[in-house]
Structure formats: structure tokens, C-alpha cells
Write a protein that binds this DNA or RNA. Structure first.
Lengths: 345, 345
DNA sequence: TTGAGCGTAGAAAGCGCTTGCTATGAGGTT
DNA sequence: AACCTCATAGCAAGCGCTTTCTACGCTCAA
């Protein structure tokens, strides 16, 4: 029914071993023989049986990429960059199956996907985005990562703090520094009543950005401002902005956990009759593609998502040597645009 | 080194066959035995060898999802919906490895990924987004899909025209109808000079949306308006809008191939000193999440991306019966918002 | 001429799992 | 008491490939 190696071998009048060697190209085969084999492969429309091959070679060409939310361009951009370095058509040339798995931000699903990838004996795994700060989950995750690296699977974290003693390489985003510079910018403009819309609690990204924000306030001798937590999406930003306004109608600036949240906040402010930036300044984080096109354009912290993803991909493929200590920090760049200005009067 | 089924069997004092049956749960095993086996699995931290299992059972738990651009929420939303029906934590409960593959819109990569999935003996494949209308590629693709379905892999197209005689089920988007209604809306407002920013040529999505647009014009007795082609992204929209303005400075409306393009067009119009919608109306397509938050909010055609993706996922899992004839059409809904208005004077 | 050395190909032993078939008892029947 | 039925469990034969080891010519140097 389905064509096997043996069929190809028979057709090319060689042994299965030779066909395998032609296909893998890791053993000398005479040019004529090779050609005969390739012709047979073509004529029979032969497709290698991946499982059989992986079993025999105890290695696969599968690389997994975990993302928290595939519908969010923040992850899409990183995932695309990783794939561009790994998958078909990538610089590597290898025909690897670079696949992205959507955890939806759920710790269990993160672990399940990791197990599934371990089951497939994945070559490498790239985990993108922030982590959940739950002790139990962190332990389970660390244990899993360690088992993966022990089994020879390279694990690279992209946009997540290092996981010590797991063998995983980390490309960490400087969320704290970015958050701090952003708030410093606002303080520099003269804002003193600044509301903060944070991401979901228990996420490293959320915490670090908030810490940076508060560090800037503290450095200026100011207390923490009003803070509201919520998911990383526009409607959360919308609701949170209204809530902040309710708590402190006199606030002159809102810092959002990311650009999508900022976008929702802008909509809420407009609906509440506040002009941006005249009445209230708004700032985001990430600098997603749409952020330059909002009205007014969004002040934000640009994270080099594509570059970081690409680098993570190369490290996963061992085409770039890992950073010293297995950890590198990726910095953001403050992008000052029209959504922030000095507060009135 | 690595723990195998046999190790678990030894520890649980049963045969490997029994362990396998406990793990697969498709054969009666006495409760006590099952428990002993599960304990051993746990104690040894056993993880099934996927390739070996797939080889022996000649079936895998891999489901592939192909997308044209993973950084575009249009695809991210669909992919996420498919995964929600298939992957871990999904309604199916099965621990399937639902993976998304980014073709980047390249025909070769599309084929390569399909081959890679065929190689892994994927359970099912969902292909999202429009197709390339190149005869050679279409044939190759059809042949590949046919071979996949022949081998028992269910193939579902989501947002792509049917592929007759390939065994693939298609959930097609009514791009033509949506495009037509959108332009009818503009005509109804009184616009006569309407520019069109199309997507890349040779894509079904591009062609159908444009055809709908022109059908509306023709029905109103108007000739085709100015048209510019470009990629489906904001900078393409920016450039194209300027080009349209150059060609016809008096145009009163611009229809864009999708929302991202429309966003770029809006930016260009603003930079050119035109007010929206006072001077020029702008419309998009898809109704991505950000579209309601643009200023002014974008008139567009809402496509039920999540619902369509979820349905594609269920069909791929045979949890919903396929539509009659293997083809169903998904309609869009015109969303009239602030970016379109009657032309002045 | 003989033997070493090289380039190339084949034989065959698995890789770790699934599953059809067979074996074994316990419980129920007549 | 002998027999039949189930419910469970084990045996063993693969699944289709990779890879080690061996074999077979040849060429080339001694």
C-alpha cells in the first residue's frame, strides 16, 4: 500500500541500507547509484516514514516553539522569527519541522506540550514569553526542562527569565529597565498622577514591568500609583482605564502593560471625553506594528522581538554560540511619540 | 539511560504488553494491575517514545495547522481556535500535538511543510488562508493533498476555496460577497471616486475581494477604479494610499484589502493632510481586534475567524460532520463605523 | 605478485512500541 | 465433577528505518 524504503531499494536494485544512505547523505555512495536511487524515489513518490526514522536514529527533526497566545502578534513575531531560522527555507537549509504550540498562558498546557515534544524526541524547544510565578509550576517546569536537556534537547527561553540549573539558555527581556525608562519619561514631562494597567498577576513580565515603573516613581520620591491588573488584551485595557479614572479622576497619565492594553485604554479615555495627550498621556510597551499608526501614535518601549526570536532560533540550532553563562539580556528602546506630552497647567 | 516500556513493565511486574494497554486504555486491564503500572510510570518518570509508538501503531497524534503569516492576527486567531479544539486542554481531551507551521506565504514552503507532516504521518492537517493561483503550484498542492487524504490524513481548508477531487473539506470565506457589500455601502453613501488597495496578486483572497468590489461598481454602472497591489501589511497600505492619491487626488474613498493595510492607508492620509472620513473614507476587511480602536473606528467586514477555525478543528477531529459536498461558505458581516461617511459636497 | 588501503555496498541486528493470538484461572453451568 | 466462559495477561511478530560490521573488488606500492 504505502511505499517503503524496501520498495525503493528493489526498484533501484540496491539494498535498503544504500537508499537510506542516499537519503541521509552521510555516507559515500557512488554517483551512479545515488542517481538510480533518487530516480526510484521520485518515480515511486516515496516519502520517508518519520516515526520509523526517528526511532531507528533516535533523533527527530522536530523543533517546538511554545507561545502564550498565538493570536497576539507579540508572540507571532517571535515565533515567525524562530521558524525563519529553523524551518524549511530557513538559513539552515535543513528540512526541519518547526512547529508552534499555543499554551494559551496555561501552566498545565505548557507542561503538556513540553511532554508531548519530549515524547516526540524533539531536537530543540524554544519557549517564548513570560513565565508563571507559581512555585509548584516553576518546579515542575524546571524539572521538565532539565529532563529535556538531559535527553539532548536544546531548550532556549526567549523573553523569559533564566531557569538556573536546567541547562536552558535564556534570552531575557529587560522589562524592568524598559518600564523604568518609560515612567522616567513621563515623570520628566511633569506627570505626577500616573495610573498603571498591569498584566495578569503571577507573570514575570507583568511583575518586572511594574517593578520598573515603581522603581522610577520611588527614585523620584513618589509613592506607588493606582494599579489595576488584567489580561494582556484591549478590552482589559478599556475596562482598567475606566476603573483608574474612577479611582482618580485627576490622573494625567496611564502606563499600560503592553500596546494592546494601551489601545483599549485610549478607546476608554476617548469614550470618557478625555483627549490624548492633552488631558491624559498614554504609554504602552512592545511597539507592535500597529502602535505607530494609532492616533496619536503610541509612546512605547520597542522590544526587538524579531531579532530576539531569530537569535533564539539560531542558538537552538547551535548555529550561534550561546551567551556566556547561558544568559543574555535583550534591551528595549524608548519610543517617544504623540500619545505622551506634558500635563496641562 | 532513558526509561522504556520494558523498564516500567519490569517494575510493575507485568509484561510490556500490559503496560502498553494501560497507557492506551483500549483493552481491559484489571484495576489493581493498572494501578501498579501507573505507579511505576510515575516513579520512573516514564515518557512514551512517540516515534516508536507511531511506528508500531502506524498512527500519530500530530495535527498540523498551516498559516501564511503567523505574525498576522488574522492567522493567529484561526490557528488558536483550531488548537483549542484539538490540542491539550481542548474539548477533545485527547493529548494531541496540535502544531502550527508558518509558510510565510511561500508555495514551496507550503508544500515542504505538507511533506514534513506527511512524513510524520500526521492525523490531520488544517490549511488556513488564501491560496496561490499558480497552475503548477495548484497541481502540486492538489496532488499532495490527495496523497494525504489517501493515507488517511484528514485535510481541512479554512478560508480557502475548495480543492475538488482531493478529499479535502473546505470552509470557504465569502470574500467576494463581503467585498461587494463593503463597496455597496460606500456607493450608497455617495462615493464615486473609490481607490482600491489590493493584496498580493495571485492570491485567491486578493482576487475575490477585488472581484466583489468591482462587481459592486459594475452593478452601479461604474468602471473599475484605481487599484494598487501590495503585501497584506500596514506599510504596503501606507505606500499604496499615497500612490492612489497621486493618481487621483480627488478620490473620496479608499477600500483596503484588509485591516492592517487600511491602518497604513489611514496613516498615509493623515500625513497627507486628509481627514478621515471628512475628506476620504477608508474601509478595511477582517475586523481584527484593533480595528474597533482605531481613530476613527474602522468600517470593515467582520469575518468569524475564531468560529471558522474552531469548526475546522472539529471537522479535522471528526467531531463535527463535514458539510454537504465537503464545502461550506462562511459569510462576513459589514461593520459600519466611523471611518466611512458621505463625501463632502 | 602479494598485500595493504580505499571506496562502496550488503547483511542483519536492533530502535521501543502495538496487537493478534494464545494461555491461564476463576467462576458459573449442567 | 467435568466443561465452558469470560476476563486478564503474556508471547512474539512485526512496524520501517538506521547503522555497525563485514565483504568485495580495485588500485597502488613494495
Amino acid at each position: 500500500m504505502t511505499v517503503t524504503l524496501a520498495d525503493v531499494a528493489a526498484r533501484a536494485q540496491v539494498s535498503p541500507a544504500t537508499v537510506s544512505r542516499v537519503l541521509n547523505g552521510n555516507y559515500p555512495v557512488a554517483a551512479g547509484t545515488r542517481e538510480r536511487v533518487l530516480r526510484a524515489v521520485d518515480e515511486l513518490d516515496y516519502v520517508l516514514n518519520g516515526p520509523a526514522s526517528s526511532l531507528a536514529a533516535s533523533a527527530s527533526d522536530l523543533v517546538g516553539i511554545l507561545v502564550n497566545d498565538i493570536a497576539d502578534p507579540f508572540f507571532g513575531i517571535m515565533a515567525g522569527a524562530v521558524q525563519s531560522e529553523i524551518g524549511p527555507g530557513g538559513r539552515a537549509g535543513g528540512e526541519r519541522l518547526a512547529v508552534v504550540c499555543n499554551t494559551g498562558g496555561s501552566p498545565e498546557r505548557e507542561l503538556t506540550y513540553l511532554t508531548l515534544l519530549q515524547r516526540q524526541r524533539a531536537d530543540a524547544v524554544v519557549i517564548t514569553g513570560g513565565a508563571i510565578e507559581d512555585a509548584e509550576h516553576m518546579n515542575a517546569l524546571a524539572a521538565k526542562m532539565e529532563r529535556l536537556t538531559d535527553a539532548g534537547t536544546r531548550v532556549v527561553l526567549c523573553g523569559r527569565p533564566p531557569a538556573p540549573d536546567t541547562g536552558a539558555v535564556a534570552l531575557t527581556f529587560d522589562n524592568r529597565g524598559g518600564g523604568r525608562r518609560l515612567t522616567e519619561h513621563l515623570l520628566g514631562l511633569g506627570h505626577r498622577a500616573i495610573g498603571y494597567i498591569a498584566g495578569p498577576e503571577e507573570r514575570t513580565t507583568t511583575r518586572h514591568r511594574l517593578e520598573g515603573h515603581r522603581a522610577a516613581l520611588a527614585a523620584a520620591g513618589l509613592p506607588d500609583g493606582e494599579t489595576v491588573h488584567g489580561p494582556y488584551d484591549r478590552s482589559s485595557g478599556y475596562d482598567a482605564a475606566l476603573e483608574l479614572l474612577r479611582r482618580d479622576p485627576s490622573l494625567t497619565a496611564i502606563v499600560a502593560a503592553n500596546d494592546s492594553v494601551a489601545l483599549g485604554a485610549c478607546a476608554a479615555l476617548r469614550d470618557a471625553g478625555r483627549r490624548i495627550p492633552d488631558d491624559v498621556s498614554v504609554a504602552g510597551f512592545d511597539d507592535l506594528p500597529f502602535s505607530i499608526d494609532t492616533v496619536p501614535a503610541l509612546t512605547t518601549v520597542r522590544l526587538p522581538l524579531y531579532e530576539a526570536g531569530a537569535r533564539a532560533g539560531r542558538i537552538a540550532m547551535s548555529r550561534e554560540k550561546e551567551p556566556p553563562g547561558g544568559v543574555a539580556t535583550v534591551h528595549g528602546e524608548l519610543m517617544v511619540r504623540g500619545s505622551t506630552a506634558a500635563p496641562r497647567g
